[in-house]
Write a protein that binds this DNA or RNA. Structure first.
Lengths: 124, 124
DNA sequence: ACAACGTTGACACATCTGTGGCAAGGTCTG
DNA sequence: CAGACCTTGCCACAGATGTGTCAACGTTGT
C-alpha cells in the first residue's frame, strides 16, 4: 500500500479531503487507486498538489481556470482559435487617436471583473 | 460620427447591447468612444465581435474563460507558472501500471465538470 | 467484529457569471 | 424642445464554482 490516504494527503498539502476529490472530479489530476478503490497519494502527487495550491493563491485563479488552461493545451483547435482571436489585433494600422475612453478604474476594487485591461480595438 | 451605435452593432453581431457593454466590462474589448462617451463600432470591432461569438459557441466556452486566456498571455508569470505545473508530468519514468482507475464516464452527461480528461499522475 | 477511515451521492450555501430590465440623467436629431 | 438613443448603476435570476456536511455502504487493522 504505497502512498498516503486522502486524509493524510489533505494534511500535508493543505487541501481538504473534499477538495482533493473535487480536484480529481474537475479533471485536473487523476490519482491512482488501490485495488479496493482508495485514492493513493505519493510524493509526486503531494508535490503537485502543493504547487497547485500556491499557483492558485499566488495569482488568485480558480481550479476551473486551470482546467481551461488544460483544455487550451489539449484541444489544439480551441487553442489556435483563441490565439487567432487575440492575434487579430497584432498588425494595427496607425490611426489610434488620443485614446481617453480608458478610465479603467471602473470598479477594480469591487474585485473580479476587468482585472484585464481590454484589448484596444483600432478602427478600420 | 464614424461607427455604428451600440444597438446597431447589436443587431449585426448577434450580441445584445447589454452584452456588448459586458464584454467591455470584463476586459475583452475596449471600444472607442465618441466625445460624448458613446461607444462606436466600426467594421473591425463588428468582425471581432462576430468571431468571438462563433468562438464561444463552437467550443462552448464563456467570456470569463477567454478572459483568462487573455490573462495568460498578458501576465507572463502566470503563463509560465501554469505551464510549469502542467509540464511537471512531461518526463515520466517508465512505471505506469496498467491504469484502470479511469472509468471516466463519471457524469459527463451531467455536463460541465470533467470535460477534461485528467492528467494521469505517475507514482514516484 | 468493531472502530476508523475510504467511496460515491445528495443537500446546502456563498459567490461569480451571464443576462435582462429599469431608473436617472446626458446627447442627438427633427 | 420632444422623442429616441446613449451612459452608468442597481436589482434580479438561473446556472456554475468551491466547499462543507451527512448518509449509506465497502475496506482495513487490531
Amino acid at each position: 500500500m504505497d502512498g498516503l490516504t486522502i486524509h493524510e494527503a489533505a494534511e500535508t498539502t493543505g487541501w481538504s479531503p473534499r477538495m482533493l476529490r473535487y480536484i480529481e472530479r474537475v479533471g485536473l489530476l487523476a490519482m491512482r487507486r488501490s485495488q479496493s478503490g482508495y485514492r493513493l497519494y505519493g510524493a509526486e502527487e503531494l508535490q503537485r498538489l502543493r504547487t497547485l495550491r500556491e499557483l492558485l493563491q499566488r495569482f488568485d485563479v480558480g481550479l476551473s481556470e486551470i482546467g481551461f488552461a488544460l483544455r487550451l493545451r489539449r484541444e489544439a483547435e480551441l487553442g489556435s482559435a483563441v490565439e487567432a482571436w487575440f492575434e487579430t489585433d497584432a498588425q494595427r494600422p496607425e490611426d489610434v487617436p488620443a485614446d481617453e475612453w480608458l478610465r479603467w478604474e471602473q470598479d477594480k476594487h469591487q474585485g473580479l471583473l476587468a482585472a484585464n485591461k481590454p484589448i484596444p480595438l483600432e478602427i478600420a
